[in-house]
Design a protein around this nucleic acid. Structure first.
Lengths: 137, 137
DNA sequence: ATTGATGCAAATAATTTGCATGTAC
DNA sequence: GTACATGCAAATTATTTGCATCAAT
């Protein structure tokens, strides 16, 4: 809670009730969420934040690098997840859409190599794995 | 050309003029394309295929696994690229949106590990790298 | 007090769908 | 000839925006 406030401070983001609430949800959620899911989760907690505000906040978090955005296949919604210190990726079941957070990221070394080969300055990446969970396969 | 027809056959996809044209474009393009870019590229070649048809064909190619879909950050359009035999990923400049195709994929071993740990059957993945190209950084 | 954040309703942009017609097999 | 593919226009859905009000510093 308090740490979330500091977290926003560190990133030069003004602390508002809505931003802290969304940050709480994302940090508890450990899994990727659509804007709508965030909205519904807030509703469960008895809080209403307008969809446009959630969109704007996610956009802000994205620009500030707090969050990763991707899309779920078979669906055209953006999904968001908090960047962790020990950053991680997700495995998504193509049938039931269940997602599992994975430990660690296998790309550090690969990025180094690519930087050297391309002269790009690589600042981020997006990785998801797709498959079928033990129930659906 | 002819090989594209066979390629469609192999995947149980009916060969139509439109599908072959789109496959040609994707195979020459070596880079990720939006539906609109595909449409415009076709226009350049003097061919008009309706947007809904392109969407439908991309959806089909996606379902059949011929193609990978992702989104470009700061943009909400789907982008598509052909899956190559030697499959690869893209590096995207966050400023000028230039994309570079990378050789190879670093994930094969990682996927094996994840399969064992999670009991998922992993069939695919999505990976893009983001950064700034030498002009924009 | 000032600047930026939020909520609402309206606008936009991407994507999807219904249906009549055309084309591959 | 039949079943599926396409094109068009209309519909839908996610996301964005204008503007008046509200809240954080």
């Amino acid at each position: 809670m308090t740490d979330h406030k500091e977290y926003l401070d560190q990133h030069g983001i003004k602390k508002t009730k809505q931003r802290i609430l969304i940050l709480n949800i994302l940090s508890q959620a450990e899994n990727i969420m659509t804007v709508e899911e965030i909205y519904l989760e807030l509703s469960k907690q008895g809080v209403v934040i307008s969809l446009s505000t959630i969109y704007r906040i996610m956009e802000l978090f994205l620009a500030k690098g707090l969050v990763v955005k991707s899309i779920i296949p078979g669906n055209n919604k953006g999904v968001f997840s908090l960047k962790r210190l020990e950053h991680n990726h997700h495995l998504i079941c193509l049938k039931c859409k269940k997602t599992v957070a994975l430990k660690g990221c296998p790309l550090t070394e690969f990025e180094r190599n690519v930087e050297q080969q391309t002269e790009f300055n690589i600042v981020d990446h997006n990785l998801e794995l797709y498959g079928y969970c033990n129930k659906c396969k």
